[in-house]
Design a protein around this nucleic acid. Structure first.
Length: 108
DNA sequence: GCTCTGACTATTC
DNA sequence: CGAATAGCCAGAG
């Protein structure tokens, strides 16, 4: 995959990166933002919050492998259906994503 | 066009 | 190790 840094549309860049993530793989907000060379992990979540209604937002997680805040239960069935490597944890969700195996990059 | 809010991250206490 | 603070950017009012 070539550079995702599009015409400068932050939103478009996020949407394309998220849409490019294969099933069973995940990327952190920081990684997605870093992919198109523009920090702002919050902005990534913001875009998904307002424009990610039709995108696999569950493939975008927080640092450490934790699912989006308030949507841990919503994302879990998606990971299970796509075969995303999950790991039992003592978090509010009761689990976390195994970044060591699920971590993905557009250049992969 | 300015201000507040928010699906985040890293650092410090 | 857990909670609080600061810094970041974009969307909506």
């Amino acid at each position: 995959m070539a550079v995702f840094a599009t015409s400068g549309d932050y939103t478009d860049a996020v949407l394309q990166v998220v849409a490019a993530i294969p099933a069973g793989r995940v990327m952190t907000y920081g990684d997605v933002a870093w992919t198109f060379g523009r920090p702002g992990a919050r902005a990534v979540g913001m875009v998904l919050r307002h424009h990610g209604g039709h995108l696999p937002w569950w493939r975008v997680i927080r640092a450490g492998g934790h699912p989006p805040t308030g949507l841990e239960a919503e994302a879990r069935p998606h990971y299970d259906a796509e075969g995303t490597p999950l790991v039992p944890a003592d978090t509010a969700a009761g689990y976390r994503i195994d970044l060591s195996r699920a971590a993905w990059a557009p250049a992969d």
